[in-house]
Design a protein around this nucleic acid. Structure first.
Lengths: 190, 190
DNA sequence: AATTCTCATTAAACTAGTTTAATAAATATC
DNA sequence: GATATTTATTAAACTAGTTTAATGAGAATT
C-alpha cells in the first residue's frame, strides 16, 4: 500500500503512528472487468483507492449511460454524492478493466478521523482537491465548446482514449457518439 | 454573530470554548452596492459569511460577465478556487446590493483549524457541502436543458429574480440574454 | 417633464449540436 | 476462418441555441 501512503502524504504531514492507524482498515479488493462496486438502489458503504485499473461512474437514463467520471490509478473515489448524503445511490461503479482497489468502510473512515486530527485534515484537503476538480469541470462546461472540451480531455488524459470506448467518452463529454464523431472529423480535416 | 454561530453548529458539534476561539477572528464589513471584495489579479486573503445582501462572483470574457454564483444570506463564500490554489484571482466579487459580511483572514482560518479539531471538522463538512452543490450543478449542466435549468433556479431561489437583473441570471445559466428571453417566451405561450 | 440610460424583447440569419437510420469497421465468438 | 456483435462513421432532417441589430419599456438624471 506504498502508493496509498504516498498519496495521503502528498496532501499533508501524517505521523507514522497515525498513518499505521489509518492504513490498518484498508482491504485489498480485486474486480474482474464488468464487475460492479455499486448499483442503483444500494447504499454505498465504502471509500476506494484505485491501485490498478479503471472504474466508470455513471447513471442510466433512457437506456444510455451518462458517464460522470472515469477513475484510474491514484484516484480516491466512491459515489461521493450518495456517500455524503447517505442516500440510496442512483449510479453504477463498474470496472471497465480488471481492477484492484483498496477499500475502507465508512465507519472506519469515521474512526480514523476521530482518532487523528492529521488524517481529518487530509480528509478536508482531499475534499478541497475534489472541489478544485469540480470547479474546473463546471467552468469547462460553461465556457468551453464541446470541441474544446474534447481537446482538453485529449491533452489531460490521453491514455483514456486507449482504455475506454469512444461512446463512453462521448457521454463523459456530454455528447452523443454521433456528435463526437463529427467533432473528430472536423478536426481531422484541418 | 448569532446566525454565523448557528450556521457553524448546523454542521457539527462545537464546544462553547472552541466557538469563542473561532468567532474572535471574524470582523464585520459593510459594502455599498457596486463595491468590490475582489478583482482579477488580486490574491484573496479572506473567507466571508454573508449576513445581509448579495454578492456576485464572476469573470469577464470579451466584455461580458460570466456569472459563476450569487451569494446571499447564510452563504459562506470566497473565490474558493483562488483561495485554495493560492493563485491570483481571475474573478470579481461585487456587491449587487448594500451588503454586510463577516470576514476572517486566511491565516486566522489556519489558526482556528490548528487549535480546534471540531472546527477543522466543520471545515471538512462545509467543504463536503460545497461538493454536493457543485456535483448537483454539474449534473444539471450535463443532463438538463437550458429551459429545465431555468425552471429549477426559479423553484430553488425564486427571490433571486427580484434582486438580480435578468441578463446576469442568463449568464449564470450559461445563456445569452436573448436566449433566456426566448425560453421565457416559449414558457409563457404554453 | 424631457432626456438619457439600462435592460428586455423580438426578428433574421446562422451554427453546432440532436435524432434516426444506414453503412462500415473492428472485435469477439464459435 | 467465417459469422455475429459491438462500435464508429456518415447522411439527412431537425432543433435549440447563437449573433447582430432594431425596437420597446422602465428607471434614473437633469
Amino acid at each position: 500500500m506504498e502508493d496509498l501512503k504516498r498519496t495521503i502524504r502528498s496532501y499533508t504531514h501524517v505521523s507514522d503512528a497515525d498513518m499505521k492507524f489509518g492504513l490498518q482498515f484498508y482491504k485489498k479488493q480485486v474486480l474482474k472487468k464488468g464487475a460492479y462496486l455499486l448499483k442503483p438502489g444500494q447504499y454505498i458503504d465504502s471509500f476506494y483507492f484505485m491501485k490498478q485499473g479503471c472504474v466508470s461512474y455513471y447513471t442510466m437514463a433512457e437506456g444510455t449511460a451518462q458517464v460522470m467520471e472515469f477513475f484510474t490509478e491514484g484516484y480516491f473515489f466512491t459515489d461521493l454524492y450518495a456517500y455524503i448524503e447517505d442516500i440510496q445511490s442512483q449510479s453504477y461503479l463498474e470496472a471497465l478493466e480488471d481492477t484492484v482497489v483498496y477499500t475502507i468502510s465508512k465507519t472506519d473512515v469515521q474512526k480514523v478521523f476521530d482518532h487523528s486530527h492529521q488524517l481529518e485534515r487530509f480528509g478536508r484537503l482531499s475534499m478541497q482537491r475534489t472541489f478544485v476538480i469540480n470547479f474546473q469541470r463546471i467552468n469547462q462546461l460553461r465556457n468551453l465548446s464541446n470541441q474544446e472540451r474534447y481537446l482538453e480531455l485529449l491533452k489531460k488524459r490521453p491514455t483514456l482514449f486507449q482504455r475506454v470506448p469512444q461512446y463512453l467518452i462521448a457521454s463523459y463529454l456530454g455528447l452523443t457518439p454521433v456528435g463526437l464523431s463529427k467533432i473528430r472529423k472536423r478536426l481531422s480535416q484541418k
